[in-house]
């Protein structure tokens, strides 16, 4: 084989390998912004499924047959926990939990690594839309019972991750009431794997009458979610 042919082969091989390396580099290089941007993009894409019921802005929809709560701005740890509960059947697998049964297959569709975390982070970053009250009750009377809730959900309804209580002040009152009824009736918070739900259920059972439920919800709707600003001196 002449030297010219060998040189041509060597040049061709080098060019080919360089091309392959460049292609691999382009293919596997993460988009600008790195892993965080990729996760956000993944979360935004997955949220399209949530938006079908929870609304484009995660504002929720109380309409019968949908009954999807507001999820915008809920903490990622709480959203993650609920999605995992729905996936495992710890929540939303009760015979009488119509809304939960609607939600469960949606959580089951999040079956790739990082899906739950990505959609939870994206949803948590959405701006909160404070709900309009619709339940009528005596907020003062409800406030008498609220200290029991405050130990987990915070004095101002802001929620507490260590105590496992989600924020209440950003949630629609119709949804809070519906969940309290579910806890009371044993539709939610009875699965052995729903650790936090099992803790919540006895609290809901304290509200023994329809009026006490309405009063409690009315009080929660007055909560600011954060301590009142100190008066200017």
């Amino acid at each position: 084989m002449s030297n010219t042919v060998v040189n041509h082969l060597r040049t061709g091989l080098t060019a080919g390998l360089t091309g392959c390396a460049a292609l691999l580099l382009v293919t596997f290089t993460p988009p600008p912004g790195g892993a965080a941007a990729q996760s956000l993009a993944q979360g935004r894409e997955l949220f399209q499924l949530c938006a079908q019921c929870h609304g484009d802005a995660g504002e929720g929809d109380p309409a019968p047959g949908v009954a999807a709560p507001a999820i915008a701005g809920l903490p990622a740890w709480y959203l993650t926990r609920q999605l995992e509960n729905f996936k495992s059947g710890a929540r939303g697998r009760h015979f009488d939990d119509l809304e939960g049964l609607r939600m469960r297959p949606m959580a089951l569709s999040l079956n790739h690594a990082g899906d739950i975390e990505a959609v939870a982070a994206y949803t948590a970053a959405l701006p909160v839309r404070l709900p309009e009250p619709s339940v009528e009750g005596d907020a003062t009377a409800g406030g008498q019972l609220y200290p029991l809730c405050a130990s987990c959900h915070g004095v101002h309804g802001e929620g507490s991750e260590p105590q496992g209580g989600p924020p209440l002040h950003i949630q629609g009152d119709w949804y809070l009431r519906a969940q309290l009824v579910k806890y009371k009736e044993g539709v939610r918070g009875v699965h052995p794997q729903d650790t936090w739900g099992l803790m919540m259920r006895p609290m809901a059972l304290v509200l023994t009458s329809e009026k006490s439920l309405d009063d409690m919800i009315a009080y929660i709707m007055t909560l600011p979610g954060e301590p009142a600003a100190a008066p200017a001196k």
Binding site: F95, L101, R102, R104, P105
Partner: peptide, 9 residues
């Protein structure tokens, strides 16, 4: 047999 969105009970 009960059908609903989206489960069989």
């Amino acid at each position: 047999v009960i059908g609903q969105q989206w489960a069989w009970s």
